[in-house]
Write a protein that binds this DNA or RNA. Structure first.
Lengths: 408, 408
DNA sequence: CCTATTTACTTTAGGCACTAAAATAAATAA
DNA sequence: TTATTTATTTTAGTGCCTAAAGTAAATAGG
């Protein structure tokens, strides 16, 4: 009798054990019990199952002596080769492809220069299929299976439907791009906003563990944002929440890449800064609509060294950013606003004006106790977040599959 | 052995049954099972406990014949007198006090005119204590106990700490006001933002059942907002989230009651509209900083009847509201924005400008599919929401208490 | 070297919650 | 009056978890 068990506790506890092992590395059964609030008898039972499924391994006792007396702990750890996931970051004219193992470690990474704006949705799907196939044959030999793929895309995406609604890296719109890959590789394909990937990585860092409500703003060619509410990315009704870059600084203000006026992005993004500067300054030549890192570095240096025109441009960018952040503080009241992205290079030149704008905009009671900090930029962060998200998403499936396989 | 059961399913299912009965009225055990996805055997078991605790009653079979054959359903319903809750709405110069029974019905309501701005925190606590005491002796005879109190306050409140951080109705700040009441009446005292109460009521209405992400904007003397994410009010890190009224329309714009410039409230609230009008129009006299309903009605009528000055003022208010809503759409991407509050009286005069501003601010992809609607204002809505919130919060406690009482 | 102590892990025994199926209850239809 | 239908209750059985008891594997100290 009583076939379908409605009690999810075993499943939940098993997931908790796997995630603890992934987040904290090898651990003993006692400690897994303590960390997750379950008895070690239960951990024994869970780990026996996982061991049998090949998802975890017992680590051989270390040569160096254990500390203290008593029976030494037997550490268990995730079997890195039990599965792997692939994260593909799609940005303007570049794709990055990273392979992560079941333990969450990056095992392979590659970059390709691709004229993304010239691709049709079909082209893109074909390209991704080809790149993943290549990686599969070259890199995935030791792995039991490819468990999931995460596409990290700039812009507005609908995770549920796997549809890219709008991306600055792509010229097409409203295209479902994950279904074909899911069919081809027989695994789940997640579509994520790039900022959400980064926020997930940052939120997992111990330094920000006390900030369940976290806003991450990414400065760069465009302006992205991710909002974590109680640690989970907030997506809104159809995935286009947290479009900070297109919230307003000045109605009828500067022209934005989106086609409207007065967006924060139209003041604070790379292209906006460079556009404002190009009119008045001698700058390294190049495509001024898509300034290079070198060009932006040069401009930032001018501002930091005191060039009055550059200083003025960065101050205005800081004011726009500040007004935008003031709105975010009023509406979200997060614990922490973290500013990162390649554009943090210019943060020092904006900072004073930004804080000034925030203080002008909000009285203390509304300003609250939110910390506002910047954070060094690492271009690999997006894919690391994508790997983590993909693994989290596939854990459940992995368990189910090993289970059904075992029963059959 | 195994004393502390970690399985919360019994508790969860019991709560689900109680809430179903409260939301939908009397129901049969079979239906409670179907609605909550549990077997009717379990409902039998749960209802036996609740019956014994006196929290529900079996309704005597109806005289009119049941439809169809088979054993007729035995309806069970909440025992209305098992407990009651009190909601107190605190607004400028007025407090409203409402008593609700365990079934969620309003059993008593009263209004008092009180010079709220002259009160100290102590005065307020004393006043509330007195009013609740009076109601207790006069109205609460039939009830077994007062299970909870909800204070619905305009402004920024911290629900967790029971602290009023800032309210336009009060001259003091950062005062904890719930502890004394909790001690005096031996029940939990919730402090809630008034807009959250209203949003909870609206979200429970069948018409908005398909909108888990709902934004409610309240126009009136000030501008309030509540954001429901997956049906639960979003509070932010310390309760001052959703301060829409003080998000920005124009940096360095019109002066706001908060002391800063350019807030949406400084254009769209009653006092802002009246202030703008007072300079150019003949208006009914009175306290122009706190215009009365009559004064506002008169002003609205002028605009609707085509007076060019009044029309211009409402159009500007609509533009400010529209830019604010555009930011909300970009950042929250809700399913629905509902505009209500006493200020909806002027919504028709703002609407065109508001939609124009939204369309100017956001391209279609960012505008999304969010519906924007207005909703008639009912001054009792706040307290009805407070009653519902207080009951939801006290269900758990009620169960625990009857349980421990039974064991002792 | 042997024994006591300490700590980790496993096994055992028992409780709780849930479900399916069987039993019972209470009506209508024929 | 009996068969049928539907609701509720009882019974029997399963899964999951925990505490306690049992076992394993080390150190500390004679």
């Amino acid at each position: 009798m009583a076939l379908p068990s409605t009690d999810t506790s075993r499943h939940d506890n098993t997931l908790a054990v796997i995630r603890t092992l992934r987040d904290r590395g090898p651990a003993a059964r006692v400690d897994l019990g303590t960390l997750n609030g379950i008895s070690s008898a239960t951990v024994t039972s869970i780990s026996a199952e996982l061991l049998q499924q090949g998802l975890i391994m017992e680590r051989p006792p270390e040569a160096p002596r254990p500390n203290g007396r008593g029976r030494p702990k037997t550490l268990i750890e995730l079997a890195p080769d039990a599965a792997c996931v692939v994260c593909i970051k799609l940005s303007i004219n570049e794709i990055q492809l990273v392979v992560g193992d079941f333990a969450g470690q990056v095992r392979h990474s590659e970059h390709h220069t691709v004229p993304t704006l010239t691709l049709s949705a079909d082209d893109l799907e074909a390209l991704l299929e080809e790149k993943i196939s290549a990686v599969c044959t070259q890199q995935l030999e030791g792995f039991q299976r490819l468990a999931g793929i995460c596409l990290a895309v700039q812009g507005v995406v609908s995770s549920q439907s796997g549809t890219v609604i709008w991306s600055p890296a792509l010229s097409f719109r409203n295209a479902p791009i994950s279904a074909r890959l899911a069919e081809r590789f027989h695994c789940s394909v997640l579509l994520e906003n790039d900022a959400n990937c980064i926020a997930s990585v940052l939120a997992a860092q111990p330094a920000y563990a006390d900030c369940p409500n976290l806003v991450v703003i990414m400065l760069g060619y465009g302006i992205g944002m991710s909002v974590l509410i109680n640690g989970v990315p907030f997506l809104g009704a159809n995935g286009s929440a947290a479009e900070f870059g297109h919230s307003k600084y000045q109605p009828d203000g500067a022209l934005c890449a989106c086609g409207r006026r007065g967006c924060i992005e139209a003041y604070t993004s790379d292209y906006a800064l460079y556009r404002a500067a190009a009119e008045n300054l001698e700058l390294p030549s190049g495509d001024s609509a898509h300034p290079s890192e070198q060009q932006m570095q040069a401009l930032t240096q001018l501002a930091l060294k005191g060039n009055p025109v550059a200083k003025r441009i960065y101050a205005e960018a800081g004011r726009a950013l500040g007004v935008g952040i003031a709105n975010v503080l009023a509406l979200f009241n997060p614990d922490l606003v973290l500013i990162t992205g390649s554009g943090v290079r210019g943060f020092d030149a904006m900072q004073t004006a930004m804080h000034g704008a925030i203080d002008d905009a909000l009285v203390a009671e509304l300003r609250g106790t939110t910390r506002i900090e910047s954070c060094a930029w690492d271009r690999d962060m997006t894919c690391m977040g994508g790997i983590a998200i993909a693994l989290n998403a596939t854990d459940s499936e992995t368990l189910l599959e090993s289970q059904t396989a075992r029963e059959a």
